[in-house]
Design a protein around this nucleic acid. Structure first.
Length: 119
DNA sequence: ACGATGACAATGC
DNA sequence: TGCATTGCCATCG
């Protein structure tokens, strides 16, 4: 490996951390960007999470389970991505109405709370 | 180095 | 609920 890679890896490491967290989200569960950032050990990096998901090319990544903190789909309403996301969520049993999820992304729900520990 | 940008979040009205 | 404002922070030109 080139020495420059070791230094650049800070960026890669964060990206990897975010990817790992997103991949760990179980079906039917949704999290906010800020939450994901937290779980990735990067508090206040919600926007970075967005960037990562946007540039991630891994098709097996369940990026559709990441929403805004208010339960809204982050992608522009009507856009191909937004429709795709809503479609996938419903396929997992998540209620999506008008680009919004009928479930609190917050760790308010029992499922979310129980999911918190571990690792 | 500097300002603009963005799949964000919290707060206030 | 919706919209505007402010704060945050990595990226990019």
């Amino acid at each position: 490996m080139r020495p420059s890679d070791t230094i650049d890896s800070t960026r890669e490491a964060r990206r990897a951390a975010v990817i790992a967290v997103v991949r760990a989200i179980p079906p039917g569960v949704v999290l906010g960007y800020g939450e994901v950032a937290r779980r990735a050990g990067l508090p206040r990096h919600a926007r970075l999470v967005a960037k990562v998901l946007g540039t991630a090319d891994d098709p097996s990544l369940p990026w559709h389970r990441v929403l805004r903190s208010d339960g809204r789909i982050a992608l522009p309403a009507g856009s191909a991505g937004a429709r795709e996301q809503a479609r996938r969520l419903r396929a997992e049993g998540v209620d999506v109405v008008a680009g919004r999820v009928r479930q609190r992304p917050a760790v308010d729900t029992l499922d979310g709370a129980l999911w918190a520990p571990a690792e």
